[in-house]
Amino acid sequence: MVRGKIQMKFIENESSRLVTFSKRKNGLLKKARELSVLCDAEVALIIFSQKGRLFQFSSSNMENTIEKYLEHGKEEETTTNNTEVQQHVQPLKHEGAFTAKKIEFFESSKRKLLGQDLGTCSVEELHDIHIQLENSLKTIRARKAELYKEDIKKSKAKEKFLFQENTRLRKQCGRKPNQTPEKQKEIASCSQRTVSLEVVTDLFIGLPPFQ
């Protein structure tokens, strides 16, 4: 008669569960003993029943076997940790080497832009450096012009503010307000033109005097 396959799940019936535990436990202890004798292996087996009862088998000293197991576990954990560390360190090493090369390249480019270490440069490299410097000068000049415009704008705003403040103070003192800065500039320009047209000449009638 063919023995039916037992389904692996918790046995609900308590009596059946106890019988199965006893049979399987004995079989497991027997197999452990046979393995230790036939193969000269160090075998240790520990079983706790549902109620906490201990069953054990050891081919040698149980405590020595457990201690050996714990040491082996520590070594395995250390090896695993070292492997994980190496897996994390290796990409960092590659990244560090790549970063170092980039820094070296930028330092070399900086020296060349400063006119240093040009002896090993080809004509094409010198041409590229020349273009970079021209582009940099254009950017610097544009920024300089922008700052000048900002300064002029601030100066005009300050001039306007001071004029308004002067006008307010003159009114408080009962004096006639000054002309606007634009009007003052216009008058000054006209005055300069008038002075330039007033040429001093001496008119003589008759022969010029002898020197």
Rank of each mutant, 00 (worst) to 15 (best):
M1T: 03
V2R: 15
V2L: 14
R3F: 14
G4K: 11
G4C: 03
I6Q: 03
I6D: 04
Q7Y: 08
K9Y: 01
F10R: 14
F10Y: 08
F10D: 05
I11T: 00
S15C: 05
S15E: 15
S15V: 10
R17W: 01
L18E: 14
L18Y: 07
L18K: 15
V19T: 13
F21L: 11
F21C: 08
K23W: 02
K23N: 11
K25H: 07
N26I: 03
L28W: 08
L29I: 13
L35V: 08
S36Q: 03
S36V: 08
C39F: 07
V43Y: 04
I47L: 15
I47N: 08
F48Y: 11
Q50T: 05
K51L: 06
G52H: 07
Q56D: 10
Q56M: 07
F57Y: 10
F57A: 00
S58E: 01
S60G: 13
M62G: 04
M62C: 07
E63W: 03
I66T: 04
E67I: 05
K68W: 03
E75M: 09
E76F: 13
E77S: 11
T79H: 15
T80C: 09
N82W: 12
T83A: 15
E84G: 09
E84I: 10
Q87H: 12
Q90G: 13
P91M: 14
P91G: 13
L92T: 03
H94S: 15
E95D: 14
E95C: 10
T99W: 09
T99G: 07
A100I: 01
A100Q: 13
K101Q: 15
K101N: 10
F105R: 11
E107A: 07
E107N: 05
E107R: 10
E107Y: 03
S108N: 14
S109G: 01
S109P: 00
K112Q: 15
Q116M: 15
Q116I: 09
T120K: 12
T120V: 13
C121R: 04
C121F: 04
E125S: 03
L126N: 08
D128K: 11
I129P: 00
L133P: 00
N135M: 06
L137G: 00
T139S: 06
T139M: 02
R141W: 02
A145D: 13
L147K: 14
Y148M: 12
K149N: 10
I152S: 06
K158Q: 12
L162I: 06
F163G: 04
F163C: 00
Q164C: 02
Q172Y: 09
C173N: 12
G174P: 01
G174A: 08
Q179P: 01
Q179L: 12
T180R: 07
T180H: 14
P181Q: 08
E182I: 02
E182F: 07
K183G: 01
Q184W: 06
A188W: 04
A188C: 03
S189P: 01
T194Q: 14
S196G: 10
D202G: 06
L203F: 13
F204M: 02
L207Y: 06
L207D: 14
P208D: 12
P208F: 06
P208T: 13
P209C: 10
Q211V: 14
